[in-house]
């Protein structure tokens, strides 16, 4: 394995069901249902997925949901704002733990 990540692997996502077809079928059925038009539009769901892709730092997901967001009509401004939502939550999640740090530091300090 020359690289841990290969862009061509994205197209092979479906093959993950080969060794456990029933689980694969259930997962992809659920996956497709999640992204179907519902109370949220397909475009909105793609933007959420794009933000989450950045939070979990999955290059396959970033590839897939950059394309999906464009296909479904978003522009670069909207996609960048989605990434900032991700950054704000990740950054905020680190910072809010500072309260825990402060609580402990104050408890054990004179």
């Amino acid at each position: 394995m020359s690289n841990y990540y290969e862009s061509s692997d994205l197209a092979k996502f479906g093959e993950i069901g080969k060794a456990a077809p029933e689980l694969g079928r259930k997962f992809f059925e659920y996956y497709n249902a999640v992204f179907a038009e519902g109370a949220l539009s397909e475009r909105e769901k793609a933007l959420i997925a794009l933000a989450v892709a950045h939070a979990v730092q999955c290059p396959y997901c970033i590839d897939a949901y950059t394309r999906a967001s464009l296909e479904k009509g978003s522009n670069l401004e909207q996609m960048t704002e989605a990434v900032h939502v991700s950054a704000a939550i990740r950054g905020g999640a680190a910072l809010v733990h500072g309260v825990q740090m402060r609580t402990l530091a104050e408890k054990i300090s004179m």
């Binding site: 038009e37 539009s41 397909e42 296909e71």
Partner: peptide, 20 residues
């Protein structure tokens, strides 16, 4: 008519229509 503004395929027609 929606046609992609780059090197990608169109999204789902019904969903795009609702968004438009």
């Amino acid at each position: 008519v929606y046609n992609p503004t780059g090197a990608f395929l169109p999204g789902n027609q019904a969903s795009l229509e609702a968004d438009y």
